[in-house]
Design a protein around this nucleic acid. Sequence first.
DNA 1: CCCCAGGCGTCCA
DNA 2: TGGACGCATGGG
Length: 209
Amino acid sequence: MLLKKIYEILYEAFGPQYWWPGETPLEVAIGAILTQNTAWKNVEKAIRNLKSKNLLYLDRLLELDNDKLAELIRPSGFYRQKAQRLKEFLIWLEKKGGCFLKINDPTEVIRNELLSIKGIGPETADSILLYAMERPVFVVDAYTKRVLARHRIIRENANYHEVQSFFMHNLPYDVQLYKEYHALFVKLGKEYCKKSSPLCSTCPLKQIF
DNA sequence: CCCCAGGCGTCCA
DNA sequence: TGGACGCATGGG
C-alpha cells in the first residue's frame, strides 16, 4: 500500500521524531494552539515564558487575566486572539475535570466539543486528540497537503476531511503510527517541500515514482 | 524590502 | 464550497 510505503521511506530517511515536544499533555495542547500559522521557535519562547513564571498549570493559567497571558505568549504571534482562545480552551478542560487522560467520552464527542471552541479548528483539535489524549486521529497540516499535492497523490484543493479520510481508511488505527507519520511529514515539508521552491529533486519520496 | 511559519474565523460570491 | 483578508511575532 502506498501510504505504508511512504511511511517506511520517511522513517528510513529521518528516523523517529519523538513528537510532540512537551513535557505534559497540557503543554502539548497549549503548544498546539500557539503554533497556529507560527514558527515553532516562537512558540518555544512563549512556553518558556510561562514555565519561567511557574504558570504552566491549569489552575494558575485560569487565574491569570487575559492581558497578562497575552503579554507572556506575545512571541507566538496573534497573541491577543490566542490568549483569549487559549483561555476558552482551558475553561473547557476545567469543565471536563481538568485532566486529559481521565476524559472518557468517545473521540468524536470530544472532537466536536473542541471544534465548538472558537479558535480551535480541525488540525488543532486533532493534534490535541492525538498527542495529548492518545486518540487514534490522523493530523493533517499544510505540509501534509503540500507534499501529497506536489506528488499528485491528492488534489491541489483537497479539504481537510478528504485528506484525513484517505489516511485513516488506508492505515490501521494506531496512535503511535499516526504520531510518527505526521511528525515525519512536517520534517519532510520543512526540508524538501518549501512553499517557495517548487522543485524537490532530492526529496526522499522521489524513489517511489 | 520581501516571504514564510506545524491555522482559524469572518465575510462574500 | 471556496477564496480573500486580518490576526502579529521573529527569522531568512
